[in-house]
Amino acid sequence: MSAPGTTKLLEVRDLAVAFETRGGMIHAVNGVSYALETGETLGIVGESGSGKSVHVLAMLGLIPKPPGRIARGEVVFQGRDLLALPDKALRKVRGGEIGFVFQDPMSSLNPAMTVAAQIVEPLRIHLGLAGAAARRRARELLDLVRIPDAGSRLDQYPHEFSGGQRQRVMIAIAIACKPKLLIADEATTALDVTIQAEIIALVRELKREIGMAIIWITHDLGVVAGIADTVQVMYAGRILERGPVDDIFSDPRSAYTLGLLRSLPDLGVRDVRRLRLQPIEGTPPDMRLPPAGDPFAPRNRYATPRCFLEAPPLSQAPGAAPGHLVAAWYDLPGQLARERPTP
């Protein structure tokens, strides 16, 4: 794996996104700020309603407006604020310097166009390639994503490919113009576990070959563990924790991260059935009325009175690895130490 560079490729500053609905305003993203370095892989973890998908759609100008609205913020990609770009300029970035792959390849691909035509499209728009040169490149891309017998499959339609192969085609389209950034939103969630393993191995190799940065959005902590350099945990439209992948798993500082890790069965122990799963009780907040304080406080047994009143800022966790940030008023390691029975 290439070591993450030191230059900022992407900087998200105080991004907030809301949706106007009949039932009221839904505050989907509430002030999200983070930076991504060249060649870095950022894993974003969160459950439905966390804002993890909405914030990247907003970044790419892909949320329908109305009902969607970017309430505030900047998304600076290679020195330009994507949110301030006119549609036409944003289209040049999207699919060119930023490639993206979504969960369901069948609804992302056009069923009435051959695979070749769909791979050639970004090559024509962004690189000005046409004719035999574009076709040759499309074939190379199918080879690159390991579709066997690529030459004869170029003129086939999406329904002639299996689910895993369709997602490979989506990846081929996403990386067609050698993007600086690949955004994958639950890209392997709909796939079988063996296919998922192949896609992840493929993306890791492509990253080495192309040197792109990756934002990998998923609810699966196992997937994030293997692919990410940095992990960012989102909940109720905010970042609750962010840090180097090993530190997030070994030294979580947010009670929500800890809850997610503990709700998975620990398969390291023999006779795992004897242990009871420790779910996070309760349900996420109603985003029409986002809580004033820490949004996780009502489900957090370690919450302090302040957690209910005032939202904690995302800042360096005391005593944790540099760059390990947490948004919490409570001290999780201290609380856990107090819980442990003294010998």
Binding site: A197, I200, A201, L202, E205, G222, V223, A225, G226, D246
Partner: peptide, 18 residues
């Protein structure tokens, strides 16, 4: 996938493509 970074990186480095 295993929710343990070190173990998971070891695991995927041994998985062959296709």
């Amino acid at each position: 996938p295993v929710p343990d970074p070190a173990a998971e990186r070891r695991r995927i480095s041994t998985i062959g493509l296709a």
